[in-house]
Design a protein around this nucleic acid. Structure first.
Ligand code: FES
Ligand code: FES
Lengths: 145, 145
DNA sequence: AACATAAAAGAGTTTATTGTCTTTTATTGC
DNA sequence: GCAATAAAAGACAATAAACTCTTTTATGTT
């Protein structure tokens, strides 16, 4: 496994995809998203339902419905997506799995882990969803395969 | 979940424990290790069997038997433990879960992920098992709770 | 109002991870 | 050789993660 759960990977890719696809208005359906990010459709649907409830993305039912982003959700940071799906264990937990990561009673790798955790957190914190549309537009980066 | 699987966390804590406990000769039994690192005994046994087969730790059956480290295994790096248990996906895989992490066809966060991955890898690469006995001896760090 | 569309919700199955228990094999000391 | 010890191995059991399928609800169109 990678750093994040599969669920979280799908969530991040989907959020990028939706933002990119609806930046200039309109909505995008679950089928197109699933195809576009290479994920199982119904499983992704569950994930997006959850992100919708948490106001990280927007959705509308019925004809011309689909998922989209508004001014508020476009400003969301990737750290909010990760926390919503995987929780904050990655940012706060001990790398060796001790019950509590402690400054006064640290594990042998505490300082190293702490630095890495902070780096990951900062990367996700500094990344708002809308920032990546440009790259995706230019075809510099991808969300599939 | 944290960065590593539970199995991997137990493996790392156990290896530190064994190294610390047998640095001056002797062996240590599975019960004492499990208690010492706060892990389920029989599950840990499986993990240690595997690490033994991979020559990351040593073991001996029978009276006065147990787990221990020799000159070779003490020089093992933590990265070898992690790779043995969790594979190298953490060091090579795409953070967004794309099938291949690619320099020419990267995901939106490729550069950031790459830097973080390298940092994790270096930390584990630069950490030989024997280096931590001192801290554990002094009670500066811990492996339990 | 009737119909079509598309997400939401519900109810599963499958697979992987984590954890437990029992039996076997190897080694030591008597 | 025999008994005691301790890891190795095998066979499960429980839980969580990942994935699938079906039904319901909301909304727009005619
Ligand atoms: S105690 Fe292990 S990372 Fe802080
Ligand atoms: S392509 Fe995603 S981390 Fe390299």
């Amino acid at each position: 496994m990678g750093i994040f759960s599969k669920t979280c990977e799908y969530a991040m890719r989907a959020v990028f995809f939706i933002a990119h696809r609806t930046a200039n208005g309109g909505r995008v359906g679950i089928k197109e998203i699933a195809t576009g990010i290479n994920s199982p459709e119904h499983f992704l649907a569950k994930i997006l339902q959850d992100l919708g409830r948490r106001n990280i993305i927007k959705s509308a039912k019925g004809p011309n419905g689909g998922f989209f982003m508004d001014d508020v959700t476009l400003k969301r940071r990737l750290s909010e997506v990760v926390e919503a799906v995987d929780g904050n264990g990655l940012f706060t937990g001990c790398g060796l799995g001790l019950d509590y990561c402690s400054e006064t009673d640290p594990c042998p790798l505490h300082n190293e882990f702490k630095a890495i955790r902070e780096r990951i957190h900062q990367m996700l914190e500094n990344t708002t969803i809308e920032e990546f549309n440009e790259d995706l537009n230019l075809g510099v980066t991808r969300l599939k395969k």
